[in-house]
């Protein structure tokens, strides 16, 4: 084997655990925390929109419009590099969580809203005829059915989020991809290191895809 090949293999082996560690310690928590908070935002926004809650309707529509209409990278830059100029300095992790939460919240709210609207009108009518209030109807009748519809697309956006968190490298957060960049700067082997980093994302996403299909089987079983 030629000398270069031996060197590359050595670098890949040495960097595997630092990369995996960065993935497990930073990429995964960033994904989970942002997704969890994002879902809370998404649910709240979706409920405000379907219940036509006037006082907040304009605000949430504006929020969804801004987030969906501008690049995530630009949003992250505004939060991390922009806000300090008005006296609001956030560390890289907090900035990333805010950015990804807002993003998941905006896209997720559309998914959940569509899922809620996919529940047939007859369900609302039957609930009304029984005397359930609008919030009881949402809670007991509509949301349980909407969740089933929303799970596959939400699982997809969770998997996308794992990959999107690599954008946090651009605001100095040392997650998986940032670590790959640092090692590359030392070793000058961009091709192999970025392939290695990509492989670790691939492992994470494959595990999640397996979990996703389990989840869908579980939720697809009861009821219709």
């Amino acid at each position: 084997m030629d000398e270069r090949m031996v060197r590359v293999i050595g670098i890949l082996i040495d960097s595997f655990f630092p990369l995996l560690k960065a993935g497990l310690m930073f990429t995964v928590p960033l994904t989970i925390i942002s997704f969890f908070l994002g879902m809370i935002v998404a649910f709240t926004v979706a409920i405000i929109r379907v219940s036509n809650f006037k006082p907040l309707l304009a605000i949430v529509k504006f929020y969804v419009w801004i987030i969906r209409g501008t690049p995530l990278l630009v949003q992250l830059f505004i939060i991390f590099y922009g806000l300090p100029s008005i006296g609001l300095t956030l560390d890289a992790f907090v900035s990333a969580v805010i950015g990804f939460t807002l993003s998941v919240g905006a896209y997720g709210s559309e998914t959940i809203r569509a899922a809620i609207l996919s529940v047939p009108k007859g369900q609302w009518e039957a609930a009304h005829a029984l005397g359930l209030s609008k919030s009881q109807t949402l809670l007991y009748i509509i949301i349980p059915q909407a969740i089933k519809v929303a799970i596959p697309p939400m699982a997809n956006s969770f998997i996308s989020l794992v990959k999107d968190t690599s954008l946090a490298a651009a605001i100095t957060f040392t997650e998986l991809f940032q670590v790959a960049q640092q090692i590359t700067a030392r070793t000058y082997e961009p091709l192999w290191l970025y392939i290695e980093a990509g492989s670790i994302y691939l492992i994470f996403c494959s595990v999640l895809t397996i979990l996703q299909s389990r989840l869908e089987i579980k939720f697809g079983k009861s009821g219709d």
Binding site: G122, Q123, A126, A129, G131, P144, G223, D224
Partner: peptide
């Protein structure tokens, strides 16, 4: 209104049972 309406039971052409229960 909902108090009085709860004295009315309604049955629909398409049943409208809650499928998740």
């Amino acid at each position: 209104i909902s108090e009085v309406c709860s004295e009315l039971g309604m049955v629909f052409q398409r049943f409208n049972l809650f499928p998740h229960m």
